[in-house]
């Protein structure tokens, strides 16, 4: 079996894999990072969203072997030790989750939205950017609220960091 090496949540990993191993299988089965979920087979539900080289992708629709040398970030790597990422906090504060199954993909997608669209997100933007993430529990209302709040919090956090740097 061919080998693949990549960095996952800051840690280098190497493994021999069957070429048909999808990234999500590599994460869940090889690395036992089971926070990334599988909810469909047609690349639509978004439960498997992770970041590859800083951009959100569906880890069920890419082969592990394609990611030689890539930097992969999953939900497990989002918090800084015990300190939650502002988007994680926002999901809890705004009751943006119920069963929790879509949540990792939702949060990774949300962070990506902020990375691309900034910290001041209106409802319309958030709803259309969630095109690729299905939730069956929340009716999206509180997810939208959570992402708006998380985006603001990420902005103020960045401002603080910047201030400290000045």
């Amino acid at each position: 079996m061919p080998a693949v090496s990549m960095t996952v949540n800051g840690k280098p990993v190497t493994a021999d894999v069957d070429p048909r191993t999808l990234l999500v299988q590599f994460l869940r089965e090889e690395l036992r990072l089971t926070g990334t979920h599988v909810g469909c087979d047609t690349s639509q539900c978004g439960a498997c969203v992770v970041h590859v080289n800083g951009r959100a992708i569906k880890s069920c629709t890419v082969f592990a072997l394609q990611l030689e040398g890539a930097k992969v970030a999953t939900i497990e790597g989002l918090a800084n030790g015990d300190q939650l990422h502002p988007m994680q906090e926002a999901f809890r504060d705004n009751h943006g989750l119920q069963c929790g199954f879509c949540t990792p993909g939702m949060i990774m997608a949300a962070v990506d939205i902020v990375n691309r669209k900034g910290h001041d997100l209106d409802e319309h933007t958030i709803r259309s950017e969630l095109e690729g993430n299905l939730c069956r529990c929340t009716g999206y209302h509180n997810i939208v609220k959570a992402i708006a709040a998380g985006a603001r919090a990420m902005g103020s956090g960045a401002a603080v960091t910047q201030k400290a740097a000045e």
Binding site: R28, E76, L84, Q88, F91, H95, L97, G100, P104
Partner: peptide, 21 residues
């Protein structure tokens, strides 16, 4: 009250049947 169960779900530490090996 903020949900007690959320900590594990927002950090990817939920434990669903498919996660059991």
């Amino acid at each position: 009250v903020r949900r007690k169960e959320d900590q594990r779900f927002i950090t990817g530490k939920g434990h669903y049947t498919a996660d059991v090996n």
